[in-house]
C-alpha cells in the first residue's frame, strides 16, 4: 500500500497519523513548520480548558505516539505544491526550501488547521500600538512562562480586562462566525491568573458566554471560586489614560444602560480563529469546497463530517471550522479510519 498522506502536524494531524500507524498503514506526515504540535506548541499554550492540564502534557502525549512509531515518516519544513488525482490515490509534490520530490499516496487527510485572528485588524482596540493590549496567545505564553507582567514596564498588572469576540461575530472584519473557544479560554486564563495571583482583579467583557456543554462548570467556578466579574457589553475602543500609564476601555455596560470608561493595567483580546494560510492553499490544490467563512466544507456535516466528497480526501480539525483540541483529536481518528478504508478498498 502507498502511504497515506497527513497534511498538518497539529492535534488533528498527530491524532490521524498515530491512528493510521496503529491500523498498520504506512503514513507520511507533512508539516510546513520546523516542529510538530501546531498552534499549541507555536504559541506556548499554558493550561488547557476545561481540565486545566498543561498543554505540553496533552500535546506531548500525542507527539510521543507519533515520534515513537517507525511506520510514520515525518517531513518537517515541507509544503505541498501539487496534487494530481491518479487511478488510485494522488500523485503529490512535496517541497522544502531547497528540494522537491514526487510521491504517490493512497489517500489524504487534510489537517491544516487555523490561524489566530490578527488583532491589529480591530484597530480600535490599539493592539500593536499599546504594548499592554495583548493577544490571547501572548497571554498564554506569559502564563506558560509564569511571567505575568505588563509589557510596557514589566510591572504586575492590578486589574485586567478580557475582551471577547475580537475578530469573531463581527461583520466589520468579515468574520460573522463564533470562535467557540474565546469564552472558555478567556475564563480559563482569568482563573489561571487568579490562581497564581489572587490580588489581580479580573473582568470579562462579554455579549454572551458560550461555554457550551460541560464547560459551563468552569464558567460557574470562575465566578464562585475565583471571583471573576463579568460585564455585559462590547468594548468600543481602547485609549490611553492617566498620562499613558494605563489603558482606558470605553464601552457600554448594557446591564446598567450606561457608558463606561474604566482604566485597566492590561487588556487581553480574545482573538478568534480563521482558516489558516495552509488550509486555503490545500483547498485550491485539491479543489475542496470552501464555505463563505473560508473553512473547508465537508460533504455532509452531520453524517460524514470528515469526508470532503472528493475521492480519497478526508478532513480533520480546525480546517473545517473553529474547534477545540478534543474535537480535533476525535476528528483525526475519524479521518484516519475513513482514509484507511479508502486506501484498502
Amino acid at each position: 500500500m502507498n502511504p497515506i498522506l497527513v497534511l498538518g502536524g497539529g492535534p488533528a494531524g498527530l491524532s490521524a497519523a498515530s491512528e493510521l500507524a496503529a491500523l498498520g498503514a504506512p503514513t507520511l506526515l507533512v508539516e510546513r513548520e520546523s516542529y510538530l504540535g501546531g498552534n499549541p506548541v507555536r504559541w506556548h499554550y499554558s493550561l488547557l480548558a476545561p481540565d486545566l492540564r498543561p498543554a505540553e502534557e496533552v500535546i506531548g502525549a500525542l507527539l510521543e505516539r507519533v515520534e515513537g512509531d517507525a511506520r510514520i515518516e515525518r517531513r518537517l519544513s515541507t509544503t505541498l505544491t501539487k496534487a494530481e488525482l491518479g487511478s488510485h490515490g494522488y500523485r503529490v509534490t512535496l517541497a522544502t526550501a531547497d528540494a522537491s520530490e514526487t510521491r504517490d499516496v493512497a489517500a489524504v487527510v487534510l489537517a491544516t488547521g487555523f490561524d489566530h485572528f490578527d488583532s491589529r485588524r480591530k484597530f480600535e482596540y490599539g493592539y500593536g500600538r499599546f504594548p499592554d493590549v495583548v493577544d490571547f496567545k501572548e497571554l498564554e505564553g506569559m502564563l506558560h512562562d509564569n511571567k505575568l507582567v505588563r509589557p510596557s514596564d514589566g510591572q504586575r498588572p492590578h486589574r485586567i480586562a478580557w475582551v471577547l469576540c475580537v475578530g469573531s461575530r463581527d461583520l466589520q472584519v468579515g468574520n460573522p462566525w463564533c470562535c467557540r473557544l474565546g469564552c472558555v479560554v478567556s475564563i480559563k486564563q482569568a482563573v489561571e491568573v487568579r490562581q497564581k495571583h489572587p490580588e489581580v482583579d479580573a473582568y470579562i467583557y462579554y455579549m454572551d458566554i458560550r461555554t457550551y456543554g460541560l464547560w459551563e462548570d468552569l464558567y460557574w467556578k470562575s465566578m464562585q471560586e475565583y471571583g471573576i466579574k463579568f460585564i455585559r457589553g462590547r468594548i468600543g475602543a481602547v485609549t490611553l489614560a492617566e498620562g499613558g500609564s494605563r489603558l482606558l476601555a470605553t464601552g457600554e455596560d448594557t446591564i446598567l444602560s450606561r457608558p463606561t470608561e474604566v482604566p485597566f493595567d492590561m487588556i487581553v483580546l480574545a482573538s478568534g480563529m480563521e482558516a489558516s494560510a495552509g488550509t486555503k492553499q490545500v483547498a485550491e490544490l485539491f479543489g475542496v469546497p470552501v464555505g463563505p467563512e473560508g473553512f473547508l466544507t465537508p460533504r455532509l456535516t452531520d453524517l460524514n463530517p470528515v469526508d470532503s466528497g472528493l475521492p480519497g480526501v478526508f478532513l480533520a480539525g480546525a480546517a473545517t471550522g473553529p474547534k477545540a483540541i478534543p474535537d480535533a483529536v476525535t476528528e483525526g481518528m475519524g479521518a484516519a479510519l475513513r482514509a484507511y478504508q479508502y486506501a484498502r478498498d
Binding site: R159, D201, G227, K229, I231, D253, L256, P259, T260, V262
Partner: peptide, 26 residues
C-alpha cells in the same frame, strides 16, 4: 459614565455568612 470598577463591596458581602453566594449571580 461609569468610570471605575471596585471589588470592595462584593468582597465584603461575600465575606459575610449570609452574602457568600453573591458571586454566583449572572
Amino acid at each position: 459614565v461609569v468610570t471605575d470598577l471596585d471589588v470592595k463591596i462584593a468582597d465584603w458581602v461575600k465575606g459575610q455568612p449570609q452574602g457568600e453566594t453573591i458571586s454566583r449571580c449572572w
